[in-house]
């Protein structure tokens, strides 16, 4: 049994923990609101971009000479992975889920060289210990990772692919669904799978292209990679805040329960000590009277 003093100390520390988790929950909630609207807005853009590209690929007879469509997996046994994680912990299983997915993927593709590019500190921390080859790590905050940086990264990746530095490029990110639900997922960014662009319904007519299909693909393609990458980052960011918010709500609730319990045992201990003291006084008085 703890003494009243010890219980009081624990109560105090848990109360301040509760305050902190509540504050973190609120911060996460407000950030979530901000990025959530951004992710939903840019989804429309990304989807339409995908749609236009798929129309382009499936309707034009061009046996696309664009190098990003050419399979290189057999020639270059190197897989590049972009992993998007959070910079901070305290967001439930968010980081762990996506990291484990990458670990599983790496095991399945053990015959190939895997190179990692990290956006977010947590992924970098995990993989720097395990003997993985880390090619690049962006130390800035995931939230500050703006479109211009995505643009630079995308053009680097496309150049690298064309030069034959790697045979496949995957992005591992967490897809945001609802606040309670998000899915660790991955997409293959390069080479572009033609299958992903097969139009669902056959197009009735041929498109007119201006200036020419090749030129449009050339201009549209880097944009497509950029928007995909940017979308992945936004999705991950939203999932992160959602996960953090849920984790902090749970933590606040747990702290509340603990405070209740401790208060109860504090009261019990206090009462017991009062009873004990009373008994001592009474028996002391009795002993005096008997004299």
């Amino acid at each position: 049994m703890l003494s009243t003093r010890e219980i009081k100390q624990r109560l105090r520390s848990i109360t301040s923990i509760k305050q902190i988790t509540r504050a973190m929950e609120m911060v996460a909630a407000s950030r979530l609101k901000r990025v959530e609207s951004r992710v939903l807005a840019s989804r429309a853009y990304t989807d339409k971009m995908h749609q236009i590209l798929s129309h382009l690929v499936s309707s034009s007879s061009l046996e696309t000479a664009h190098p990003c469509f050419v399979e290189k997996a057999h020639e270059v046994p190197v897989i590049k992975i972009i992993l998007i994680t959070a910079d901070k912990g305290l967001c439930g299983a968010y980081n762990n889920n996506i990291i484990q997915k990458v670990v599983r993927f790496a095991k399945e593709h053990a015959d190939k060289t895997i190179r990692l590019v990290h956006i977010g500190k947590k992924g970098n921390l995990y993989f720097s210990k395990g003997g993985y080859s880390i090619e690049k790590y962006f130390p800035e905050n995931v939230e500050k990772f703006g479109y211009s940086q995505v643009k630079a990264l995308a053009s680097q990746l496309i150049d690298g692919y064309e030069a034959g530095e790697f045979g496949q490029l995957y992005v591992f990110f967490t897809k945001f669904h609802t606040v309670m639900q998000s899915f660790p997922s991955h997409i293959q960014l390069l080479p572009v799978e033609k299958g992903a662009f097969e139009a669902k319904e056959k197009l009735q007519r041929e498109y007119i292209f201006e200036p020419s299909a090749d030129k449009i693909i050339e201009a549209l393609f880097p944009k497509y990679i950029e928007t995909q990458l940017y979308q992945c980052i936004l999705e991950s960011l939203t999932s992160e805040y959602a996960a953090r918010r849920v984790a902090m709500i749970a933590a606040t609730e747990n702290a509340g329960e603990m405070i209740d319990e401790l208060t109860r045992s504090y009261n019990k201990a206090r009462q017991e000590s009062i009873t004990k003291e009373l008994l001592e006084v009474v028996s002391g008085a009795e002993a005096l009277v008997q004299h």
Binding site: H55, L56, S59, Y207, E210, P211
Partner: peptide, 9 residues
């Protein structure tokens, strides 16, 4: 309305 399919920059 009724324009032929077109993709352009």
């Amino acid at each position: 309305a009724g324009h032929a399919p077109l993709i352009t920059a």
